[in-house]
Amino acid sequence: MAAERATFRIWRGDAQGGTFQDYPTKVSEGMVVLDAVHQIQAEQANDLAVRWNCKAGKCGSCSAEVNGNPRLMCMTRLNQLDLSVPVTVGPMHAFPLIRDLVTDVSWNFEAKKRIKRFKPRPPDAPDGTWRIAQGDVERVQEFRKCIECFLCQDVCHVLRDHQMFDAFIGPRHLVYAAALEMHPLDTENRIPDLKRAHGVGYCNITKCCTKVCPESITITDNAIIPLKERVIDQLYDPVAMLFRKLRTRD
């Protein structure tokens, strides 16, 4: 792929409206979509709005839809794309548009605050800390790889198509809740909240979130389904329900 040209069809516009515009530019070996966007920004469209920081798939800022697929632009190599036709680059659809490739993701930060914070058990090792086995942290470490790119939120139909931002916290925050719930030191109970305030039941396991996760977190199987099971165990188990009823009568 030595020094050829390709066309990038980039969304330009704001909440009031906009259009895709074509930008032909030079491409070279190893380039990613974000490189092309930067080149276009520096040479042809100085005011093109785009978020980015690390350019190494670690910060989760440059989320966009490349040829319709939710992707990090910094981790999407041009050699994975068909450059004989224009490459479409648009903003995430689930969130309100600010400008060009930048969307208003502030809801995510508000939603996270509503999840009960980490509450560790008192330190129980002689030195005033804790002892935790590696095996017990690995499950949580998978969830803590999350870079908060919000691509899973973008692709989740409950948010994207139904815009149920008040009723459902979305896959990212279910992963966050799972990391807390399965943290070996945590003592908080978030199960009632997960059922009611956080709407875990709205997830119908289509696994779209898992497919787009750039960190390859097994969101649905490892985080959401176990949370659903905990909700059922705690809140729908017939024996437990009967037990609770009897206790309330006491």
Binding site: P120, P123, T129, W130, R131, V137, Q141
Partner: peptide, 15 residues
């Protein structure tokens, strides 16, 4: 940081 929820890799005796 650990008390605030950070999950570090562990030694064989759990530290």
């Amino acid at each position: 940081l650990e008390a605030w929820g950070a999950v570090f890799d562990r030694t064989s005796d759990g530290r």
